[in-house]
Nucleic acid binder design. Structure first.
Lengths: 347, 347
DNA sequence: TCCCGAAGTTCGATTTAAATG
DNA sequence: GCATTTAAATCGAACTTCGGG
């Protein structure tokens, strides 16, 4: 391995000068262009690459940002990760990406590993609240700028990026309503999930504003669970239950796309055609939504943008820390967007 | 930050002794239990965590393995990553995970970043051959144990893990044949992909062995492309083309699951019901395959296992390097497995 | 010789303070 | 004082060498 001393020897200068030139440090303005050129060509010729361990040991910087996701096999994660990765790539930070599998023990162990590697910032993608609030709150104090995607800790000093769930719920309802649907079945999210209640609140107030009353026998709740697949299974079972109740409905509003997929499967089993006999709308717009048959109408979370936003919050935070400025937590809410495909149709 | 010297001071011993005790180095056997205990409790009380930069600088070890995937939004990647991540977690290595987006420039830049961070091993997940063979071959020489998943470089000193595509092709054919299908349409993989030809070879020889002749007007090829979504689009378009030709067929064997999804969509548009009027079989068994309506019959690649296998190859390689033993490239082929679901049915 | 512990060197870079003309 | 360069200290842990009992 070629070291800075090798470059010094080859160029005829001291390692100090080499360091100053190659890093374009403040002192570099005193160094004549000829010297610079010599050093640079020597470095290039030798293929010099600075040892990051040595550099980080001295400078206390790692140029690394930790990224934690709750479950990488969940297509929801995947798309946000794209945004995170892209932004980090552009900011010259390397992501230290870990998958927590919705297990608290993994969360703790990976967090330790990241701290050991001196991450300068942290992005946590966690819509399911499996994580230890206290641990995260500690982070806020630890001078490691942190952003949460998909949930919010208003009380603490941790930034967040979330969708406007209320808007999303309203948009979905407006869509179904405008297509003429009045008898709508609902599969709501689990109560422990912070996304659930604002979506429902919007549905409720929309219905109220239109003088539509909601049939409580057409409202079911997703059970608490942390497996992403389970929301498909639950969607399937709850829709079967819905059909069994023999209350007529012309549309289903599912908590998320996975639930919607389960619902479509159950409808199809019961020989109810989508969208001819029943419309279905999801939430999220995960990748498979566009590939499904029928393709799924859904409320899209701008996932790439959310990832980028979280990164820019964290990177700003890192810069603030470097300049000894105060870092304040920010809370962003982004607007979702209706994507009309084949699974909904007017009556 | 608390350093080893702080622990030394607090426990009343020198930093040497602290280092020996906490690392359980060979010399530790001479040190009396009482000393050890004192040092350990002091370390715990202070919350001492060794600085990895300092440690790595000295020891030349990073306990990090690089992982490169071609596209994280591809569900094929996702599932293999699970296997990789799990095994790495158990081996106490931290993955440095990067997503190359099927771009060569990213591949090169991330490779450099990884090398700079002194990865001890590398796992590359790349079924699409976008990558620079030469760069990878260099890796083989660079004493960084490397494993390729999904393609093979027999000529070079790089290990690999692949599926037995020939077996997979045969299994799929046997399934369709046993259901009574004789007029089968094929959407083959792009020629540049190493998976394509063995699968087709197996189909061909199976047909030959049964005296079945393949109608060339029912055989189409996926175009060359690196977008995962495109295989859905291509599957859709090619199936439309197939229908337009008005040659009757009772089953479609698609190159992979994405292609199969596209085919199902096209069939459904043409009011051809799956599986009642046409069976469809895929390859891979990506997560959405089980969620699709109808759920997809497919040839499953044991993806988690493939990821684990690649990791164990790399970890073995790392250990060999540490003990100055020779590292030989190994080439594993794993057996795929038929998963029968709803998209195929007997005539 | 065996056991225990410490002083000092090393890894490869950055940075401070200082030395030249 | 100014432009140009460098010796030496430093970061935190690991390892080599050595000395005392």
């Amino acid at each position: 391995m070629v070291t800075i001393r090798d470059v010094a020897k080859a160029s005829g200068f001291s390692s100090t000068t080499v360091s100053i030139v190659l890093n374009n440090a403040p002192l570099a303005r005193y160094i004549p262009p000829i010297t610079k050129k010599k050093i640079e060509t020597a470095a290039k010729k030798l293929g010099y690459r600075p040892n990051l361990f040595a550099r980080s040991l001295r400078s206390k910087r790692s140029h690394t940002v930790g990224v934690m996701v709750f479950d990488m096999t969940d297509p929801y994660c995947t798309r946000i990760l794209r945004g995170i990765e892209n932004s980090l790539y552009q900011s010259n930070f390397l992501p230290l990406l870990t998958d927590v599998h919705n297990e608290r023990s993994r969360f703790e162990r990976y967090l330790e590993m990241m701290l050991d590697r001196r991450i300068e910032g942290l992005v946590i993608l966690a819509n399911w609240l499996f994580l230890d609030i206290n641990l995260i709150a500690d982070l806020g104090k630890s001078s490691i700028p942190t952003a949460l995607i998909g949930c919010e800790l208003r009380t603490h000093s941790v930034s967040s990026v979330t969708v406007d769930n209320e808007l999303g719920g309203r948009v979905a309802m407006e869509h179904l309503y405008s297509l003429g649907h009045r008898k709508i079945a609902f599969i709501r999210g689990p109560k422990s999930l912070s996304d659930s209640s604002p979506r429902w609140k919007a549905v409720h107030s929309f219905a109220h504003s239109k003088g539509l009353d909601l049939d409580s026998r057409l409202i079911l709740d997703l059970p608490e669970s942390r497996e992403p697949i389970s929301s498909f299974d639950a969607g399937y079972k709850l829709t079967e239950e819905l059909i069994k109740r023999r209350r007529s409905f012309t549309a289903i509003m599912a908590f998320d796309d996975m639930t919607a997929f389960g619902a479509i499967r159950a409808l199809s089993k019961a020989e109810i055609r989508v969208p001819e006999q029943c419309s279905v709308i999801g939430f999220d717009d995960v990748v498979p939504a566009a590939l499904y048959t029928p393709s799924l109408t859904t409320v899209r979370q701008p996932m790439e943008a959310m990832g980028s936003l979280a990164v820019s919050i964290v990177v700003d935070g890192i810069n603030s820390v470097l300049e000894n400025r105060e870092v304040a937590a920010v809370h962003h809410q982004v607007a979702p967007e209706l994507v009309v495909r084949e699974s909904t149709r007017s009556l």
